[in-house]
């Protein structure tokens, strides 16, 4: 039993080495599918983090004009609180804004040197007692003369939600399409290999090889393509993440997107490897069933 298994594995590898283009073709499409899937999963998880970040942030932020003084801010606070809808209002002065900015960019000394407190606006972070009162508070802020700009977090959140939904739907379609393609290509590649080994298969049948002995190397082949594709995809993602880390950090400063935990990467690797094995197995079974008459 054991010796037979070893021989089947050996046969699988010998055949793979003899037709490298088959391996490249099959592994490459699988790689593409798994790469897109892994990227998609990470983007989805990342956008979740971004959403949470914005949801936990003040509901409306009003940025003040440069000449606004504290008395005006206090006045505005009073107006807001008189509505009875205000849960909390937090003033962030220019100096505090600079401090926050410095904290977020502490790894980038050049950025720090260029920015002074003057360049950053003071702001008021306003929380409503309930999300439905937000428009009332926002309206007051918009009308206020000293306010330069009002950023409505709800808009960001709902925009983001829309975006992630779109990406998710699109992603699912693209990934489904990629996997169907992968399945078909793996199937065709294994079918090709079956025809390459037509003579050998005929001889195997003549000397009394069992049907499973003939089929198993092709099934192993399919499973190997799956694992290779998945492994390659996750390694590439991992390298790419390392390479893009500074860019991502800058783009989403203040949002804890990185580092992606090792556990998560392992989970993705495991999931994809398993899917790869399954996909390779299924296409190999179909290929041997369709092309191998034994």
């Amino acid at each position: 039993m054991f010796i037979t298994l070893l021989r089947l594995i050996k046969t699988t590898f010998q055949r793979i080495v003899r037709s490298p283009y088959h391996v490249i073709a099959a592994t490459f499409v699988l790689f593409l599918s798994f790469f897109v899937t892994a990227a998609f999963v990470l983007i989805m998880l990342g956008s979740n983090v971004i959403l949470k970040h914005f949801e936990s942030k003040p509901q409306v932020t009003a940025f003040f004009k440069d000449d606004t003084n504290l008395a005006q801010v206090e006045e505005l606070k009073k107006v807001l609180s008189n509505t009875g809808y205000l849960a909390n209002a937090k003033y962030v002065s220019k100096e505090e804004a600079l401090k926050i900015y410095k904290e977020q960019n502490k790894d980038e000394p050049i950025l720090l040197e260029m920015v002074t407190a003057d360049m950053l606006p003071a702001s008021l972070e306003v929380f409503a007692t309930d999300i439905k009162y937000l428009p009332n508070l926002a309206e007051i802020l918009t009308k206020e003369n000293s306010v330069e700009e009002v950023i409505y977090q709800k808009d960001i959140v709902s925009n983001l939600t829309n975006w992630t939904n779109t990406i998710r739907n699109l992603g699912v379609i693209v990934i489904a399409f990629l996997f169907v393609t992968s399945l078909l290509i793996t199937l065709v590649v294994i079918g090709l290999n079956i025809s390459v080994y037509k003579d050998e298969i005929e001889i195997m049948r003549l000397v009394g090889a069992s049907s499973s002995y003939i089929r198993i190397p092709f099934i192993f082949e399919g499973m190997l393509y799956g694992v290779l594709g998945a492994g390659l995809a996750v390694s590439t993602i991992w390298l790419l993440l390392g390479y893009l880390e500074p860019v991502i950090k800058e783009l989403f400063s203040g949002i804890p997107l990185l580092p992606v935990s090792n556990d998560l990467m392992l989970l993705i690797l495991g999931g994809e490897a398993l899917t790869g094995v399954l996909l390779g197995f299924i296409s190999a079974v179909i290929a041997t069933w369709k092309y191998l008459k034994v």
Binding site: I3, R7, V207
Partner: peptide, 11 residues
């Protein structure tokens, strides 16, 4: 040897 390998004989 092939004909013996496929029926699981030892090396």
């Amino acid at each position: 040897a092939f004909a013996l390998e496929i029926i699981g004989r030892t090396s």
